[in-house]
Deep mutational scan, measured.
Amino acid sequence: MIINNLKLIREKKKISQSELAALLEVSRQTINGIEKNKYNPSLQLALKIAYYLNTPLEDIFQWQ
């Protein structure tokens, strides 16, 4: 199972779901689904999230 800290990191950086979704060219619902662990992002999307949040990938997504 993958645990993610996306919501915590996104809120710490004061970025809304809508703003992050626009940067990543995905829907706000996609961001919401990832934050709620409804599904895991593709590797490409995970890397883009880490890039736009300027945060190491392993700080956002962790195996458990």
Rank of each mutant, 00 (worst) to 15 (best):
N37P: 01
G33T: 08
D59N: 10
L24G: 03
A21D: 02
N54V: 06
R28H: 15
K38V: 14
P41Q: 01
N37I: 03
I9H: 08
I34R: 00
L57D: 02
Q44V: 12
K14C: 08
I2Q: 09
Y52C: 09
W63A: 04
N4L: 03
V26L: 06
S16M: 06
E19S: 09
K38N: 14
K13H: 11
I3D: 05
K13W: 06
S16D: 06
Q44R: 10
I31M: 04
Q64W: 05
Q44M: 09
F61M: 03
V26R: 03
N54H: 11
T55P: 01
N5S: 05
A22H: 13
K36M: 15
S18F: 12
T30C: 12
T55R: 05
E19M: 10
Q44F: 10
F61R: 00
V26W: 02
L8Y: 12
M1I: 12
I60N: 00
I34Y: 04
K48L: 08
E25S: 13
L43C: 10
N40H: 08
L43W: 11
L47V: 13
K7Y: 07
L53A: 02
Y39H: 13
S18D: 12
R28L: 15
Q17I: 13
E35D: 02
Y51M: 12
W63G: 04
N54L: 05
K12C: 09
T55L: 06
Q62W: 06
K13S: 10
K14G: 14
V26Y: 02
T30H: 10
S18W: 15
A46R: 06
A46F: 02
K14E: 11
Q64R: 09
N54S: 11
E19L: 09
I60Q: 00
I49Y: 00
F61A: 01
L43H: 14
I2N: 07
V26D: 03
E25T: 10
I3R: 13
L43T: 10
G33E: 14
P56F: 03
K38L: 14
Y39C: 11
I2E: 09
N40E: 11
A50C: 07
Y51G: 08
I3M: 09
N54C: 08
I15G: 01
R28F: 14
D59V: 09
L23Y: 14
L23D: 11
P41D: 01
E19K: 10
F61V: 02
K14V: 05
I60H: 01
R28Y: 10
R28E: 15
S27V: 03
E25G: 15
L57H: 04
L20N: 00
L53I: 04
I3P: 05
Y51V: 10
E19F: 07
L47P: 01
L57I: 12
E58K: 08
Q64Y: 09
N5R: 07
I2C: 08
I3K: 14
L23R: 10
K14L: 12
I9G: 02
L23E: 10
A22W: 06
R28G: 10
L6F: 04
L24H: 01
I9L: 09
N37C: 08
N54K: 12
I34M: 05
Y52Q: 12
A50S: 11
Q62D: 05
T30R: 08
R10Q: 01
N37A: 07
E19D: 14
Q64K: 10
Q29L: 13
L20S: 01
K13C: 08
S18K: 10
K12W: 13
Q17A: 09
L47H: 14
T30D: 11
N4K: 02
L45Y: 03
V26Q: 04
G33W: 11
L8E: 14
T30M: 12
W63N: 04
Y52V: 15
K36G: 14
K38I: 15
Q17S: 06
N40G: 15
K12I: 11
I3Q: 10
D59E: 15
Q64F: 06
K7I: 05
S27E: 13
L20E: 00
K36P: 01
L57Q: 04
I49G: 00
Q29R: 12
A21W: 02
Q62N: 06
I60V: 10
K48W: 05
T55C: 08
N32Y: 10
N37H: 10
I2F: 11
I60F: 03
L53K: 00
L8C: 11
Q29I: 11
S16K: 12
K7P: 05
L6A: 03
D59K: 13
N32C: 08
S18Y: 14
P56I: 04
N5F: 05
D59C: 08
N32T: 11
L23W: 14
Y39V: 15
L8M: 11
S18G: 15
I3L: 13
L6K: 00
K36C: 13
F61Y: 03
E35A: 01
L8A: 15
K13V: 07
G33S: 11
N32K: 13
M1Q: 05
F61W: 05
Q44T: 13
E58W: 08
Q44S: 11
S27L: 03
L8K: 14
F61N: 00
I60D: 00
S42L: 03
Y39M: 10
N40C: 08
K13Y: 07
Y51C: 08
E35C: 02
E25F: 10
K7N: 06
W63P: 05
L20C: 03
K38R: 14
P56V: 04
P41Y: 02
K12L: 13
I2G: 06
L6P: 00
A50E: 04
I15E: 01
D59L: 11
F61E: 01
N4V: 03
N32P: 03
S18L: 14
S16A: 08
Y52H: 12
I34E: 00
A50M: 03
Q62P: 05
S27A: 07
I49A: 05
E11I: 12
K14S: 12
I15C: 06
R10F: 02
P56Y: 04
L20Q: 00
T55Q: 07
Q62S: 10
R28Q: 15
Q17C: 06
R28P: 15
I31F: 03
Y52L: 11
N5I: 02
P56G: 05
I31H: 00
A21H: 02
L24D: 00
A46K: 07
L47K: 15
P56C: 06
A50H: 03
L24V: 14
D59A: 12
L20P: 00
K38C: 10
T30I: 13
S42T: 10
P41C: 06
E19W: 05
T55A: 08
T30F: 13
T55I: 06
E19N: 10
L24N: 03
L53S: 01
N4S: 04
K7A: 13
E58I: 09
K7H: 06
L57M: 12
Y52D: 02
L47W: 09
Q44G: 13
I9M: 07
P56Q: 12
N32D: 15
S18E: 15
N32F: 08
L23P: 03
K36Q: 15
N40F: 07
L23F: 15
Q29M: 13
Y39P: 03
N54I: 05
N54Q: 14
K48R: 12
E58N: 14
Y52G: 06
I60R: 00
S18V: 14
K13Q: 12
E11P: 02
N32W: 11
N4A: 03
E11L: 10
K13P: 01
N4Y: 02
S16G: 07
E25D: 12
E25L: 12
I3V: 14
P56K: 08
L6G: 00
E11Q: 09
K38D: 14
N32L: 10
A50L: 02
L6D: 00
L20I: 05
I15Y: 11
A50Q: 05
T30S: 07
P41A: 04
R28M: 15
L8F: 09
K38P: 02
A21V: 03
A21P: 01
K38M: 15
T55M: 08
I31L: 13
N5A: 05
S42M: 04
I34Q: 00
I34S: 01
N54G: 11
A46S: 07
E19P: 02
R28I: 15
Q29G: 15
L57F: 06
S16N: 09
I31Q: 01
L23G: 11
A22Q: 08
L8Q: 12
Q29F: 13
K7C: 06
L20Y: 01
I60T: 03
Y51W: 11
Q44N: 08
I2L: 10
N4P: 03
Y39S: 07
N40T: 14
Y51I: 10
K36H: 14
L24I: 13
L57A: 04
W63L: 06
L47A: 14
A46C: 07
N5W: 05
Y52P: 00
W63M: 05
L47S: 14
Q64D: 13
L57R: 04
L43Q: 12
K38A: 14
Y52R: 06
I34F: 04
R10W: 02
D59I: 07
K7T: 10
K48I: 04
E35I: 02
Y39K: 10
E35W: 01
L20W: 01
K48T: 05
N37M: 06
K38S: 15
N4Q: 04
I3W: 07
K12G: 13
I3A: 08
I34H: 01
A22M: 10
L23M: 15
L6Y: 00
I49C: 06
